[in-house]
């Protein structure tokens, strides 16, 4: 029998025969352990993502083995690789097609900042067109780094309010990108 670990229970009030906590926390735990990533892999980092998904590193340990190639069903947009200016509208379109709640992870130097490609044709970081939650450095990041970035996303998902999209701060952020 392998060593199966359960998620720790959130903080709450416990008594004989009952346990009370907030809905936010329960939903957060559930969500964070079953994220459906949408791999937006364009170049080198996509190959490292392949390694992350394969048997050696195995992202399914974090409940994310179900890749969602349809943006409509995805929770997490993982942008891996260089985004050229020609690609930027496509990326934005994919982000717009995703339903709330949605998170974005910029994997690798190119997606985070343009990386070594400071040229006329490359977008200098995807945060010019869509908001980003977690940046993973590296060119390309090792699979461990991608997993670490993913765990940071999980932490965000766990601790976030259910009503994030109604917060003024979030509305303001989206408005900055011209997204309604």
């Amino acid at each position: 029998m392998s060593d199966i670990q359960l998620v720790d229970a959130p903080a709450g009030v416990e008594g004989a025969g009952f346990f009370a906590t907030s809905l936010d926390k329960v939903i957060g735990i559930a969500r964070s352990n079953s994220l459906w990533p949408l791999p937006f892999a364009t170049s080198c980092c996509g190959i490292e993502f392949m390694a992350t998904m394969a048997s050696h590193y195995d992202l399914s340990r974090f409940g994310a083995e179900r890749l969602s190639f349809s943006p409509r069903q995805a929770d997490l947009l993982m942008v891996m690789g260089t985004i050229a200016k020609k690609m930027a509208p496509v990326l934005r379109q994919v982000y717009l097609q995703m339903a709330e709640p949605r998170w974005v992870m910029a994997v690798g130097a190119c997606a985070s900042s343009g990386g070594i490609f400071d040229t006329y044709s490359v977008l200098q970081g995807i945060d010019e067109v869509i908001p980003v939650d977690v940046y993973v450095p590296g060119c390309p990041p090792r699979p461990e780094a991608i997993i670490d970035g993913f765990m940071n996303i999980q932490e965000l998902v766990k601790t976030e309010s259910l009503r994030r999209r109604n917060e003024p701060k979030y509305q303001e952020l989206l408005a900055k990108y011209g997204i309604q």
């Binding site: 020609k86 400071d118 006329y120 044709s121 200098q124």
Partner: peptide, 26 residues
């Protein structure tokens, strides 16, 4: 073929700058 269709310049000519001249963050 590689660049965006509405580009007017030819980027490998020597006078064309490597970096995007419109950048403001740098």
């Amino acid at each position: 073929i590689l660049n965006v269709d509405d580009m007017t310049a030819f980027p490998m000519r020597k006078e064309f700058p490597l970096e995007d001249p419109n950048r403001v963050d740098k």
